[in-house]
């Protein structure tokens, strides 16, 4: 975005990786506590749904107990890889005046956040994957993806990461206009909870909610890769999904550009 050679951008990322790892290491206690929360949430819904499945004679809405286990274990990994924290970060930066130095660097601040994000993901991924495996084993998950499912999962996951980052970063720009974004943040979080398949697989929700989840970007940010790896989607459904992801990414990208320009304009009009 700053029109510099890709080589030097790579160098910025490398440096940022290194310093970010050091930062995260300084906060390893906080990191451990965060991981605990990340692990617990899918376990709660996993337990609820396996209990429901058991009481209904083994299966509910086309999910057996083992399939619920697989769903929530994969969901945990996808969540860990896609989630962002920019709602808080952006507000904090702008209020505390940490935004100005970022603005004065000859690099677009989004690169700073992408690098931070990737580093954090890389670090926590090493803890989340074993945790997912423990869940898969402990709750006797049934997961038999075909090769096609596994191959489709990779782009679906990568696009989900890009899409969720762009959407949340763009929404976080609201902090330029509002002094408190926590209400927006929470409303978005709740939509996310239901429409991206965190509370239950989308197939268990009322049809209208399912339609909404597919029309909005939510399904494509989290649920879609999980469904893909579970082998619940036909090849044409997978292709449609990837198409939807790409369309939403382009839309979100455009919104980010517009929102960013307007936000910075406002910031430099009112000061910090």
């Amino acid at each position: 975005m700053s029109g510099r050679a890709p080589g030097s951008l790579m160098e910025i990322y490398r440096s940022k990786f290194r310093s970010e790892i050091a930062v995260q290491f300084a906060y390893r206690g906080a990191l451990a506590i965060w991981l605990l929360g990340l692990l617990l949430e899918p376990v709660i819904y996993l337990v609820v749904w396996t209990t429901v499945a058991a009481s209904q004679g083994g299966a509910v809405g086309g999910f057996t107990a083992g399939e619920f286990a697989a769903y929530f274990a994969i969901l945990m990994v996808v969540n860990q890889l896609t989630f962002t924290w920019h709602f808080h970060e952006m507000e904090w930066r702008i209020r505390q005046g940490f935004f100005s130095p970022l603005l004065l660097r000859p690099v677009h601040p989004v690169h700073n956040d992408i690098a931070e994000n990737l580093t954090f993901k890389l670090l926590t991924f090493t803890a989340v994957v074993p945790a997912a495996i423990v869940l898969l084993v402990a709750f006797r998950a049934s997961l038999q993806p075909s090769l096609v499912d596994v191959l489709a999962f990779i782009p679906a996951l990568a696009l989900a990461m890009v899409l969720r980052f762009l959407v949340e970063w763009t929404l976080a720009l609201a902090a330029f206009w509002l002094t408190k974004v926590s209400a927006i943040n929470q409303a978005y979080y709740v939509l996310m909870l239901f429409l991206s398949g965190q509370v239950a697989p989308l197939a268990l929700l009322p049809p209208i909610v399912q339609t909404l989840a597919s029309l909005l970007p939510f399904r494509w940010m989290v649920a879609f890769p999980v469904e893909t790896l579970q082998g619940r989607l036909s090849p044409s459904e997978i292709l449609t999904g990837i198409g939807a992801q790409i369309v939403w990414i382009m839309l979100a990208w455009g919104l980010l550009q517009v929102g960013w320009r307007a936000g910075v304009k406002r910031y430099s009009a009112v000061g910090a």
Binding site: K16, R18, S19, A22, A26, P101, P106
Partner: peptide, 28 residues
């Protein structure tokens, strides 16, 4: 460059030299 006596621009939790290295990359 802009230096403000009341604001901190170096990363708080990591050794100073690592922040320098980051600045080196950012400013090319």
């Amino acid at each position: 460059t802009l230096i403000m006596g009341q604001r901190n621009q170096l990363a708080w939790d990591i050794p100073v030299i690592d922040s320098f290295e980051l600045n080196r990359a950012i400013f090319g």
